[in-house]
């Protein structure tokens, strides 16, 4: 149950090890890592700048994590999201979810990703040979939230 917003890189292996350290009740540990791509939309990307809204970012991520924990029987969860200057190949963010069985862990990890893509206040700016460009939100990102809508909610 943790949310971290940081400029520094993280050690995926160490984070996952810490999540399950000293426990034998976890049966499934799922993680996702987002990386900076070296090209997008036919243009080479030299670097990426990730801007965020300090304060709201932590609140939004904590709310998304709390919602996931209300929906699935999670034994542990972690969201780490970086900001600042990143270069292709670098880690941008990670989510990890732990549960007794894999289905809940997989679903909760997807839920966290779908929500934080369009509900956590981060904005990506790519440096391309033609100059800087802000990454547009995609319609598919918003559409991805629809599948998590609850009847009557």
């Amino acid at each position: 149950m943790a949310v971290r917003v940081q400029r520094e890189d993280f050690d995926l292996g160490a984070e996952l090890a810490a999540l399950r350290a000293g426990r034998s009740d976890i049966g499934a540990l799922v993680s996702f890592t987002g990386l900076v791509r070296g090209a997008a939309g036919g243009a080479a990307i030299a670097a990426m700048e990730l801007e965020h809204y300090p304060g709201m970012t932590e609140r939004a991520l904590a709310a998304i994590e709390a919602e996931a924990r209300a929906r699935w029987p999670l034994q542990a969860s972690l969201i780490i999201h970086r900001y600042g200057a990143l270069t292709p190949g670098e880690q941008i963010m990670m989510v990890a979810t732990a549960s007794p069985h894999r289905q809940a862990a997989f679903e909760a990890a997807e839920f966290l990703m779908d929500y934080l893509k369009s509900r956590a206040p981060f904005w990506k700016k790519e440096a391309t040979p033609e100059g800087g460009r802000w990454v547009d939100a995609r319609d598919t990102d918003e559409a991805a939230l629809a599948r998590w809508a609850r009847p009557g909610a």
Partner: peptide, 25 residues
Amino acid sequence: QELADFTAPLAGVREVAFFPPMTGG
């Protein structure tokens, strides 16, 4: 620091933020 609509009232509000659709992840 909570998402809102353009129709939302400002009474009691201290901080208003404007930004494009978010692109985290």
